[in-house]
Design a protein around this nucleic acid. Structure first.
Lengths: 255, 255
DNA sequence: CGTATAGTTGATTAGTATCAACGCTAGTGG
DNA sequence: CCACTAGCGTTGATACTAATCAACTATACG
């Protein structure tokens, strides 16, 4: 866990006339990301206004963007990279709330501080807005607010799905569900649904699924033995029997 | 699980001039509920417009308002009563996503159907809006949209808190956290934080906390033996040592 | 008052955590 | 270029929490 000092977002530079190439995808993202991101269905003009309020930063791996309890003054969007969000208990137990990728937004919460820590998994380019400015812009750009609302509803639906996983699924079902979710996400990003990158460690996966490192490792090997996945290299999985994985995830597997 | 046919909301009657007493709290709720509900910070005029789109129904206990997968065409608000939301797996395993009370809203989801079943715990008066009308009204009443957005963010924060509970807390910590949450909610409603009504069954509590009925029962008796709670009658708890409960909930209890 | 349902308690089991050892991989420095 | 080290991941042995199975009790309802 890197506790690097500032490594500032280019906040201060927003006053200078920032070149905004409106023919290029906004937020320096590719089209796929724009499709997903919260600047998604805005008009060119609206994006121009939004762009004037944003600032970027290229952050290294394992960089804490903010911590649980920090004053919640910014909202973030991932241009490229991957981020994990987690909550800690006083004795160190950790629950990862979500893994986020290009186009995902984070940092919304109640007044009085972020309710989770956000940390990069890999070097990531983030884009951020002060909450104040975003708030006033939402008043002026209804489609922006609507978009953020819709994204929040999606997050909520995903969180409810995860509650079912955490409360009622077995270790094997949990891991199968997790891999399928990663696969679906990869498709959205235009990547292969079969050959997946796993930018997170076993410890991260364990803390996301409510398991221990050892159990995650054992289930990985079990799935490998059953020919459902392959582990070609560290940080990669291949889903060789997606159907089997789906049965496992839903708890309909025979045996 | 009552599968009563319609027991209609008064949808059809919305055309008749509905008497809207604007000096009285809207949605036939008390002030406390108005404070919490999503009509919360609207002006009198805005409430008038909103009221024209709503319809009510008084529903009995254990009534399924809608089921997971049903076309998601309405959004609901609880005037009085209590509702549980849950997801089912094909083999019957169930996860309760939330217990809702006066002022709470539910029914938002993705296109294509509700992602959970909603069922009353006790006789409840609900107030509902077609999604279509609410959607168009959000365009006209920015404060309505903002309010619903804010409530959704709160739901998301609560869901994240619940993930920590489901993934990382012990049975005792889970129950302690649950009781404290109920207590805080009671305070918001102007009720005692110590003497609580438990409108839900042990099975419901178990499915909310990711436990079995037996474990919930055992932990209740354990807490009773330790003098932390009392169980004066079925459907009621008294929190006799809130401090002890808080320590348990956070996992900071000694021993 | 009798029955059905909800809740409690006990005995045993199962799944996952914990503790421990070991292997692999990547980065470091000689 | 290769040995060394640190951290990550895997595997094994054992422990423990909560689930399961079963019996019993209390409560609500007709």
């Amino acid at each position: 866990m890197n506790v690097m000092p500032p490594l500032d977002f280019d906040d201060h530079k927003t006053e200078r006339p920032e070149p905004v190439d409106l023919t290029a995808p906004p937020c320096r993202n590719c089209d796929v990301v724009r499709e997903l991101a919260f600047c998604g269905d805005l008009s060119t003009d609206e994006i121009k206004r939004l762009a004037s309020a944003r600032c970027h930063a290229q952050l290294p791996s394992n960089f804490a963007v903010f911590r649980e309890g920090d004053p919640a003054d910014h909202v973030y969007s991932i241009s490229t990279g991957a981020v994990k969000l987690y909550k800690l208990m006083s004795d160190g137990r950790r629950q990862i709330i979500g893994f986020l990728f290009s186009g995902d937004m984070f940092g919304l919460g109640l007044d009085g501080g972020y309710c989770y820590t956000a940390e990069t998994l890999i070097p990531s380019q983030l884009c951020r807005f002060t909450y104040r400015r975003l708030d006033s812009m939402m008043g002026e750009l209804p489609r922006l607010e609507r978009r953020m609302f819709t994204m929040t509803v999606k997050d909520l639906v995903a969180a409810q799905e995860q509650m079912l996983l955490l409360g009622r699924k077995t270790a094997k079902e949990k891991l199968a569900t997790f891999l399928l979710k990663l696969s679906r996400r990869a498709v959205l990003q235009g990547l292969s649904p079969v050959s997946l990158a796993l930018p997170m460690s076993r410890a991260d996966i364990a803390d996301y699924l409510g398991l221990t490192i050892e159990t995650v490792s054992r289930v990985f090997t079990q799935l490998k033995r059953e020919g459902i996945i392959e582990l070609p290299a560290s940080g990669h999985v291949m889903l060789t029997k997606e159907a089997g994985l789906k049965e496992l995830a839903e708890g309909t597997a025979t045996g």
